[in-house]
Design a protein around this nucleic acid. Structure first.
Length: 321
RNA sequence: UCUCCUGGACU
């Protein structure tokens, strides 16, 4: 069970499949508990067909968790139609089911349908309200988001963070700062949003100060700060931050790597980009073959270094078409 | 307790 869970968390589909195969050889292959975990695992890994298959094989061993997990799998992966079908087919629905179907519409940006569902819910939980708040937030309906926020009796950290990140994403710095002050507790998500708010408004220095003041940094907070300097073409600081980030034990993912490379595009530093990619490969065995090359191509192309893109690609031997 | 909500570039 723990092994399946860890695959869900790590989105490790290959290992998940192996464990699944192992489970099939044991008497536990009919365990509702374990099968539910498998549905979750396949859902988190984005393999909906396999999630569906496990679900279909459970027959009368299905419980509400099984249904909710399948529903969640569709919702989380943007398969609104299948989510709707699953929701419709459920023998019983609880608040988790309703929140899941709501999420299906929120996540694809369908505010109207989200609102219809939200109003149709028998029991609106704090999570439902947060989802509705998030729906407005994602579509840039800041005023409606604020109204929604004010109507929530007991806001959770997520509620505060959703509104704060909306201000941040839209560059509403004064509102963001004010809200940040008001917050009962500020976690790393809140701090990161404040960095973003400053960055979006071109307040590079202040963004950096916020970053340095935050109690702890994680991969995302490093990345947003890095991205800010990379996009302004400040190669020195980008470089410095990259190193500090790695010293802090943060393993860059492909977003972070993309930001580092973004810095290279401004200086035309093909060799720098190459060595960076190379370092990624050797230091972290990072899947550089899995990074989105169109991102790199785009960055260099935009900076007018099309020829360099070719060199970069050829030099690393990953250029295929 | 096996299920639901919040922060990051390119696309």
């Amino acid at each position: 069970a723990c092994l399946v869970r860890s695959c869900s968390k790590a989105k490790d589909l290959d290992t998940g499949r192996l464990i699944h195969a192992d489970i099939l050889t044991t008497p536990f292959s009919t365990s509702t508990y374990l099968c539910n975990l498998l549905i979750e695992m396949y859902g988190k890994c984005g393999s909906l067909d396999e999630a569906r298959l496990v679900f279909a094989g459970m027959h009368y061993h299905l419980n509400i968790y099984s249904w909710n997990l399948l529903l969640s799998a569709y919702a989380q992966n943007g398969h609104t139609l299948q989510a709707q079908e699953t929701f419709g087919a459920m023998p019983v629905r609880d608040t988790v089911s309703w929140n899941n179907i709501l999420y299906a519409y929120v996540s694809v940006g369908d505010v109207e349908q989200s609102k219809v569902l939200f109003d149709a819910m028998h029991e609106q939980t704090l999570i439902s309200s947060n989802l509705m708040l998030y729906a407005y937030a994602r579509c840039g309906h800041i005023d409606q988001a604020k109204t929604m926020f004010d109507r929530i009796p007991e806001c959770s950290r997520a509620s505060w963070n959703i509104l704060l990140s909306t201000y941040a994403a839209n560059g509403e710095l004064p509102e963001a700062e004010y809200l940040f002050e008001q917050m009962p507790e500020r976690d790393i998500v809140a701090w990161t949003s404040l960095v973003v708010a400053n960055a979006r408004c071109g307040q590079t220095q202040r963004a950096r100060e916020v970053f340095e003041r935050m109690p702890e940094a994680d991969l995302v907070s490093w990345t947003v700060t890095l991205e800010m300097f990379a996009s302004t073409g400040d190669w020195e600081i980008t470089n410095e931050l990259s190193h500090r980030m790695q010293l802090a034990g943060c393993v860059p993912d492909k977003t972070a790597l993309g930001c580092m490379l973004l810095g290279c595009s401004h200086t035309g530093g093909v060799s720098a980009a190459r060595s960076r990619l190379h370092a990624m490969n050797t230091d972290y065995k990072l899947e550089t073959s899995g990074v989105d090359y169109y991102c790199i191509v785009d960055m260099f192309g935009r900076a007018g270094y099309l020829e360099d893109v070719k060199h970069l690609g050829l030099g690393l031997g990953f250029w295929e078409g």
